[in-house]
Nucleic acid binder design. Structure first.
Lengths: 171, 171
DNA sequence: TATTGTTATACTCTATAACTATA
DNA sequence: TATAGTTATAGAGTATAACAATA
């Protein structure tokens, strides 16, 4: 609990606070607008769209674990969402030939068609809300910063992020 | 629906895509970790913490509408969350002297104490996850970019963002 | 009539723990 | 024994619409 350097206990300076608040607000606003658009246009939640887009971007088939890697999500939540997509005919599920424990999720033609139908409007939202006020230089800088932060966050997950809690000996 | 310039229908270029994906991922990861911390440390959701922090940062009392302006939220959702905070003894609600329609939400001493107890750890999370890999220059640049985007998003809300739908004459 | 806020309701989402099956 | 995934369940959060009260 107290294994952080004392340096970490100082308050954020005003620039950090301002950057943090602005980032949070942008994230929240953007998320809401994207969600609204996806729901209205394709009846999908953001997570469902991300799952479809991941499948579409890869070879069309991924295991549940591979899908989970891309999305911040619990396993059961992923099962639930993929179940909805399957019910809607946008993906199919089947056993993996390599590893009988794995489930291979495949996007259907209908799924691909939906992604392609939704994508332009999705991009329009992102462009109009996020990128419009940014210069080319801003864009490069933003991409660079966010990529570094993401790699940092992915590289050192907080100690509480154990993928699956195993039963302790004292349970 | 087709009132956007044709320019908007082009796909995002790779730099935009990469910046957008990285931003989404960072936002999502950060949100999850902050949520986890607030829940573990103070039993609060992010929204509840934001509401308390807003009250704490202002004079300690705001109307429901003023609170709603800071958070992306439906009115009923706000009522629900403030109700929880009230039940927990962190805020009180009373009629506004200025406008009898308004509800004035006030943070209690207990509420302030909770914010002060949680804030250092919250900041530690943000610093460690978000700011650690960034230089001073990055920080300034990020703050500048995010502030501009936020102002842009706040200035021109999408047409669907009417605060409250009034009954149409044909209903 | 417009605005502020609440309530009732129904639904979506998410996490935890227990479970099955394969490696 | 560890890993991949599912299921049951229970709770939190959210939105919509109808509502009451004040401006």
């Amino acid at each position: 609990m107290s294994d952080s350097p004392p340096d970490d206990d100082r308050p954020l300076d005003p620039r950090q606070l301002s950057a943090y608040f602005a980032l949070s607000e942008v994230g929240s606003l953007l998320q809401h607008e994207v969600e609204r658009h996806l729901r209205a246009e394709g009846g999908l939640s953001t997570v469902q769209f991300q799952l479809l887009a991941s499948l579409d971007a890869s070879d069309g088939r991924l295991t549940m674990t591979q899908l989970a890697d891309g999305v911040v999500y619990s396993r059961s939540g992923l099962t639930y969402q993929v179940g909805l997509l399957e019910k809607a005919g946008l993906v199919t599920r089947g056993p993996s030939p390599d590893d009988e424990r794995s489930t291979l999720v495949s996007i259907t033609d209908e799924g691909r068609a939906l992604v392609e139908r939704i994508l332009p409007g999705h991009i329009r939202v992102v462009r109009g809300r996020l990128f419009e006020p940014l210069s080319d230089e801003d864009l490069d800088r933003l991409g660079d910063i966010m990529t570094r932060v993401r790699d940092h966050m992915r590289a050192r997950p907080p100690r509480s992020a154990a993928p699956r809690r195993r039963r302790g000996p004292a349970d």
